[in-house]
Design a protein around this nucleic acid. Structure first.
Lengths: 349, 349
DNA sequence: CTGAAAGCGCTTACAG
DNA sequence: CTGAAAGCGCTTACAG
């Protein structure tokens, strides 16, 4: 049987009320030092834990944050389980430091609003973390806007919902950094190989590239980055162009397949990925475990480890839960460019 | 303000008790069909949701399952966030079908027992799903054994704790299948390239290989599968042996790095991964996104999609929560071998 | 069948 | 300061 306040009260011969006050460190309790220690000792020995439900019912506060994942079947990228896993993990850890639990709820785009309402109406949480695409959340904006509890979303909503506490990567800044990195290696003709998705982040990446490269030729902007084959064909096309139309650097706004396709097309022409004289520079986004065959490029670090979850906890949710002002509701993370791992054909030490 | 049973009762002019009974479909309620519909309609219109805390306090049942992740820093493999992410997702979905929520709690190996006790004592959940290594859970076996609620663990505890409801892969069977697959391609000399970890699953993989290959030469059993470099050296060593000591098949009990290292060593000798005459067969475990450069092997499917979570929900936790017998407490999943994805140098259609 | 009442375990405003 | 009491919102055994 679970231990209650009453059990402790009976054991030490005091009222449940004092026990509660002592255990919760309420100010203005004037129990003798001896009794205070007896209470603490008894609670510890008896393994007392406040019943979460009772506390929640009485105080109206659950010490729980709900993580709502809005998933569309077949959606690529950041909403895949292995992408949000680390985010969820560090969100949970960050919240746990302040004593908050994380309740996970899965939903589809159609029932996301319903899920939010239900969490709120059943008073299952004190705050809400919503993970989903911009489009899917946009549909349920009214529900979020009328929500009577703190919330934060993963995504790029600065234009439509600038007041929403939100966190995401600075996709534009990332591609600008990629272009800049290749410029500093002397590249002047930089192409873009991105995703064909009509998603906010994909458009953000492209926008960053366009911002960094003033008016690039149309042929250098490609959305054929999704598969190895498509990327291979695109880079082949580029490499077969007359030499002054041929890119010397490629900014990647896609995942591993784009890198592999590019490396293959270059390989067939005796060219390696790299910043050397006869090489073609490649910099940009990657998936989890990119291993190149022979080349070396630049990829973003800090994309994996759950930065978004951690910052959402520390800077958006916890302050709001503590009734503190949220200083910056719109968080944008700009990861650093680091060299890709040693390629398979790296020379041995 | 949240809607309560009393609000509905007042609106329809009946007692909260009937409302509760009607809404919960309790047997033996004899309210007029008209009133029944009025109650349902009012509840719907007013957006009524039972307060989770009140229900839980009263009924003693939370409709919540806790997911406890016991993580050791630097632990490789299946406890990485992108590995358990899909498991958590399908566990949550499976439970949600029966109305159960998932509460996530992160902990280290030292405080795992404490975390279990706390979840139980605070009555935060009706059941527990524990994710961690065998060693880490073993330390806290007493806490689990004296737990007064259903639980299930991810792992291989059939020898020490055969009564624990548990789910994991059939690592032995997987390696047996890999060896068998290569045998059916005519390979007779099959080597093993595995992880150097002292973890139960790593030992299970090796055991399966040894079981399938009666008394293989010591030199064919290697734990140098962790990095590209180590795997490269190992496979190079094998390939430099006299031809009749040279493996014609390699069973991989490691991740992508082992495949890449093997492919490189073979490539330098003009050999490809494959089941053809002048090729070397490779079959076994992979990480999430394996892309070979030029070869084709056999990998396990169903490793990613969260099978363990789904089956834990459906076959171990939900029956126990419904007071039904758990037919088989020890679940072992044997995934199928499928061809690896097209290599980068695949010829175009 | 159905309503009034008790009670789950806390916390805190209210008297003493 | 501190105890007794009320009450958070449900559910169900108990009378009617």
């Amino acid at each position: 049987m679970a231990v209650t306040l009453r059990d402790i009260a009976e054991r030490v011969g005091l009222s449940p009320a004092v026990i509660s006050r002592v255990l919760n460190n309420r100010p203005g309790v004037w129990v003798s030092e001896d009794n205070r220690l007896r209470i603490l000792k008894a609670a510890d020995e008896m393994g007392y834990r406040p019943a979460a439900a009772a506390r929640s019912l009485r105080s109206g506060c659950t010490y729980t944050v709900a993580f709502l994942l809005v998933q569309r079947p077949g959606l690529p990228g950041v909403l895949q389980a292995w992408e949000y896993g680390p985010e969820l993990e560090r969100l949970a850890s960050g919240l746990a430091e302040k004593g908050y639990s994380l309740l996970v709820r899965m939903t589809g785009p159609a029932s996301a609003g319903e899920a939010v309402s239900e969490l709120a109406a059943s008073r299952s949480c004190d705050a809400l973390a919503v993970w989903g695409t911009e489009t899917d959340l946009h549909t349920h904006a009214d529900v979020l806007d009328s929500l009577a509890m703190p919330f934060a979303v993963k995504g790029r909503h600065e234009s439509c919902h600038p007041h929403w506490p939100q966190v995401d990567y600075d996709h534009e800044g990332m591609m600008e950094a990629a272009v800049e990195k290749m410029r500093s290696a002397g590249r002047k003709r930089i192409a873009y190989l991105g995703f064909p998705y009509d998603e906010t982040y994909a458009k953000g990446l492209l926008r960053g590239y366009l911002r960094a490269t003033a008016d690039p030729p149309e042929a250098w902007v490609s959305d054929r980055g999704e598969t190895v084959q498509a990327a291979y064909r695109q880079v082949s096309d580029w490499m077969d162009a007359p030499s002054r139309e041929r890119p010397t650097g490629i900014a990647i706004g896609a995942a591993n397949a784009a890198w592999h396709g590019a490396e293959r097309a270059l390989h067939e022409r005796g060219i390696r990925i790299g910043d050397g004289d006869d090489e073609v520079s490649v910099a940009g986004q990657t998936g989890t475990e990119l291993t190149l065959w022979e080349g070396r490029g630049w990829r973003f670090t800090d994309l994996m480890p759950g930065n978004m979850g951690e910052r959402m906890a520390a800077e958006l949710l916890l302050p709001a839960l503590a009734d503190q002002p949220v200083e910056r509701p719109v968080l944008r993370i700009l990861p650093q460019l680091v060299p890709t791992d040693d390629p398979v054909l790296a020379s041995d030490a």
